[in-house]
Amino acid sequence: MSLSPHTTPSGFLLPSIHAAPPFFTLQPKAETQALVTEQWTRLILSYARHRRLFYLRVEDAEPPGSDWDEVLRNDRINRRLPPSHLSYILDDMVSKNKAMYEPVKQTRSVLLFWRLPEEWAEVLHDWASSTAQLNTILTFFEIVEPPVPSQLSGIPDTLLRRAISILTKTNRAQVIAVSDGEGVRFLAGNVSK
């Protein structure tokens, strides 16, 4: 059997480890499992970035047909990641700030941080300043579904809010609330801090 990288129909390059059957089973030895978890974390995040996926649910590992089939299953070696193993990996990712449970108070679904909220904050501010929208009042909807698609198109509300709250701490954004909803105004701020 050959262990080799494989390109999926969506154009994602799976590493050769993805063709190794033991990779899919929870390892009894803690050190081995730590390595496996690390590999899975990296794989999940890069695939999420590739497809712009923000959520991963334990149930995505169950019946085929989810967005994650290409990664969570490998039909060429007849293996799939069991939900229990995925659940273990998600738990580890949350503990390492690579993801967060979303919604909170459950452990079946996570919001993936293939960009950390801090990094999203920079992307957000860069977008506002490069599209000349500093000092303009924007609605959240306008950011998530801009007329011209941007890196922020389709970003989940939770991430957007976290990014904005990071920017408000350095006076680079200001949240404005009215009875009907909320808006945000980005400010140039000072670069030093």
Binding site: I137, T139, F141, Q174, I176, V178, D180, G183, L187
Partner: peptide, 30 residues
């Protein structure tokens, strides 16, 4: 500019614009 600039005040105009934009978003969603 420069120095420790603080966040500008939210004026009535700002609120009006925001209201308007929120309305617009609602129509779009509808």
């Amino acid at each position: 500019m420069g120095g420790n600039q603080s966040v500008p005040k939210v004026t009535k105009q700002d609120r009006a614009i925001l209201d308007l934009k929120l309305q617009r978003d609602k129509v779009k969603q509808y």
